[in-house]
Structures are given as C-alpha cells and as structure tokens.
Computed example of a mutant assay.
Amino acid sequence: MRTAIIAIRSRLDRAGIILSGLCAVHCVLGVVLVGFLGLGGEVLLSPEIHRVGLGLALVVGLVSLGFGVARHGRIAPLLIGGLGLALMGGAILVGHGFPEAVLTIMGVSLVAFAHIRNLHGAC
C-alpha cells in the first residue's frame, strides 16, 4: 500500500511539473500570438481556460505536495507551491496582459520547483 501511495504522489508531482510547463507555454504563446500578431484571442485568452488550469493546478498541487509532507515531513515544498498557486490566482485577478504573464510564469515556476523538490524529498 505504501509503495502505491508513493507511486501516485510521484505521478502527481510529475503531472504538476508538466502542467506548470504547459501553463507557461500557454502564457508566452498568448502574449506573443495575441499581443504581437493579433491571433487566437478568443481561445488563448478565454477565462475558462485559466479557471480550469488553476483548478487543476490547485488539486494536483495540494494533493501531491500534501502527500509529500506526510511522506518526508518537510513542509517547504507545500509552502513554495502554495505561494506559486497564490501568484497564479493573482494573475487571474489582474486581467490579461503583461502583469498576468509575469505573475503566471513566476507562479508556475514556483509550483514546478516545489514539485521537483517534493519528488526528491528535500527542500
């Protein structure tokens, strides 16, 4: 049972890293394609995409980072990931544009870092 929980946590951490990367790519592409080329605004800037992405990040982040605290007793990855998720939430509140991109990329970077540290059991 214990190895199954560790495997699930590991998969969730890897999913969190992948989601963080996809979010950063989406953010940069949104700025470039919409801001500079005027393409894809209806899809890339859709509030639903951002809400769903943040919801997935919250679920994956809190579950896997919470499992990490239970597994290795270190709360730092959860705190770092929580700060990243808060920045991502703040990005939704500021509206589209450069400030949103900066907050999002900072947030997903912290979340990815937290997942990486959680996988290694350190921080």
Rank of each mutant, 00 (worst) to 15 (best):
L33F: 11
V69A: 05
V69P: 04
L56R: 00
G41R: 10
A91R: 05
G73E: 03
A86Y: 11
L62N: 10
V31S: 12
V60H: 04
S20H: 05
L39I: 13
V25H: 03
R11P: 01
L78H: 04
R71G: 09
A57T: 08
G16S: 10
G35H: 04
M88N: 04
G82P: 08
V59A: 15
G89K: 07
P47K: 01
L65P: 02
G55P: 12
H72A: 12
L58Q: 09
P77K: 15
G30W: 08
C27Y: 01
F36I: 12
R14A: 14
S46T: 05
G55N: 07
L62R: 03
L87A: 13
I49R: 00
L22V: 04
L19C: 10
I17P: 00
S20G: 15
H50S: 02
A70M: 11
P77F: 15
A15H: 07
G81D: 14
S20C: 11
L85V: 14
G89P: 03
E48F: 06
I75F: 05
V34I: 14
A70Q: 09
R51C: 03
L29C: 07
L33I: 04
A70C: 09
F36A: 15
V28H: 05
L39Q: 12
A70G: 09
G90M: 11
G16V: 07
V31I: 14
V31P: 01
L65W: 06
V34G: 01
C23T: 14
R74H: 14
L29R: 03
G61H: 09
C27W: 01
L87Y: 05
V59N: 02
S20D: 09
L78I: 14
V59G: 02
S64F: 07
V59M: 11
V59K: 04
P47T: 01
I49N: 00
A91P: 06
L22P: 04
G82D: 12
G68N: 05
A70N: 06
L37P: 00
G82T: 15
C27I: 08
E42Q: 07
V28G: 02
G53W: 00
A24W: 02
I80H: 05
L65S: 08
R11I: 15
R51T: 13
A24E: 03
L37N: 09
H26M: 12
L65A: 11
G41M: 10
C23P: 00
I75E: 05
A76M: 13
A91W: 13
P47A: 00
V52W: 05
L45V: 12
L45H: 12
L19N: 04
A24I: 13
E48Y: 06
G38S: 07
L58V: 09
R71A: 15
D13W: 08
G68H: 11
L22A: 00
A57M: 13
H72D: 15
G73D: 03
G16P: 06
G73C: 11
L22Q: 00
L85C: 03
V60Q: 06
L85A: 08
A70W: 15
R11D: 14
L45Y: 11
R51M: 10
A24L: 04
A91D: 04
I18G: 02
C27L: 08
I17G: 04
G55E: 01
I92A: 10
L12I: 06
